[in-house]
Amino acid sequence: MPDKKIRVLIAKPGLDGHDRGAKIIARALRDAGMEVIYTGLRQTPEMIASAAAQEDVDVIGLSILSGAHNTLCPRLMELLHGKGMNDVTVLIGGIIPEADIPALKLGGIAEVFLPGTTTQAIVDFIRHRVSTAPREA
């Protein structure tokens, strides 16, 4: 069965400019054959949600290193639900204290990738997740 290319939006929410991780992931996913859209810096949850809807992505990858995840993630999830985008997989990578992870997952974040994660692990996670949760055409 010829696979449709997995579409991923990589986003940097908040004021932080440290984009090393976001850029590496964008490139690694592209090298793995996915269609990757990188938003650039300083995106509000509103901008990310509308870019995700416009680009019809399967996955949103958020890079957050600033400690603002507890504010930014619930807001984004709320906006995605508002747009009926309940099947989009939302991932976070960055500096996230372990204690915050359960609440983030409860809020609908599919996975939190901490420093030291290989790019392959993220590729594998996305492939598995998207293939087992097929979307309606």
Binding site: R42, S66, G67
Partner: peptide, 18 residues
């Protein structure tokens, strides 16, 4: 903090969470 680094006051909308 990031709002200060970006020249925003603490009560600016973009400062939320930061």
């Amino acid at each position: 903090d990031l709002p200060t680094l970006m020249g925003y006051d603490a009560d600016h909308p973009l400062s939320e969470g930061e």
